[in-house]
Nucleic acid binder design. Sequence first.
DNA 1: TCTGGGGTCCTAGGACCC
DNA 2: TCTGGGGTCCTAGGACCC
Length: 403
Amino acid sequence: MFVSELPGSRGATILHADLDAFYASVEQRDDPRLRGRPVIVGAGVVLACSYEAKAFGVRTAMNGGQAMRRCPGAIVVEPRMSAYSEASKAVFKVFEDTTPLVEGLSIDEAFLDVAGLRKIRGTPVQIAQRLRAEVLSRVGLPITVGVARTKFLAKVASGVAKPDGLLEVEPDRELEFLHPLDVSRLWGVGEVTAEKLRSRGLTKVGDVAMLPEAALIAMLGRASGRHLHALAHNRDPRPIEVGRRRRSIGSQRALGRSPKSPATLDAVLAGLVDRVTRRMRSAERSGRTVTLRLRFDDFSRATRSHTLPQATDQTRAILVTARALLRTAHPLIAAQGLTMIGISVGNLENEAALQLALPFDKAANNELDSALDQVKDKFGTNAITRGVLLGKRQGLEMPMLPD
DNA sequence: TCTGGGGTCCTAGGACCC
DNA sequence: TCTGGGGTCCTAGGACCC
């Protein structure tokens, strides 16, 4: 994996770039009648909403009825996923024209490391200004950029600067910036964790920073406790990672409240498997672990999973597994109303990476090293681990590999 | 009109192997 | 023969993010 140098004493060189109200902005860009108006994308539930709608209290993930009560004048549009995907690609092209060190986080946000670019492209803030201008002129979308010394702080900064803003957190004022913020600004603090913290009187990041790590671990578990303690003190040594790949591919569907016949359920399941396996094949990924996800009318959830001996992207194999998982969940489904069903395939292996890795299993060391470098550059370190594991399962002789 | 669809990571127990 | 420790993988659930 390409990894940028660890953020050190060189100052604020990490950018977090985040498109504003992404889906809604694409709609406003493509239909002038929507500009300046409250726009809601998605009918049953709000997938995204413009800032004009947010001003009325409309929020992402809010149900459609509630959103319309808060903002009766809103214009509701159907999502156009392919348009968003196109726009995202164009924006990432601008990122990559800025620096090769880009770590995509989702369809609409990424980290950029601009540490080595001061001489040729100017200060990080100048680069961020140019980036915002270019996204606007080349793709027609507003974007907010946070600039800081760490990933976490850059992300917090963009969150504070939204919409259509730019904010740098200078290295000598980090805690001054961070500690007055609400705990919910911390990455990884959602409703449940925020409530736990608030119930103990911890409302600001600074309050969390006063607690010993052990206290946070006792409260939230080992990983979350450590994570939060580190973030509250602005310790985040994670470098930008280029070439991160998806670890699972899935699809799900809401079923509504009325009971569904077994035949209907099977048809829905087959449709989901078909969608997922098509996407796997077009992404050239195959996987071993099939997970069935269910949600019931009381909002409880259940999952059932099975791991196959060999990775596959074939509809038939995944469907057979999915049907078997659905049968094991029959008692649950009989007892409660099923409102959502989903399938995802994880434990993804990468065909191309394996083809590169496996033929070299008996080659001389230097040949092997260069093959591994190719794999690493192209698919990341994890691809090698997966290649070795698969090789072992297939009984191939694999030499010891460097870390 | 109490809820979408796509993901990530962590925890914990049990099976199994050495 | 008995007992224990460590590591990996699988399964299920939960929190969180956009």
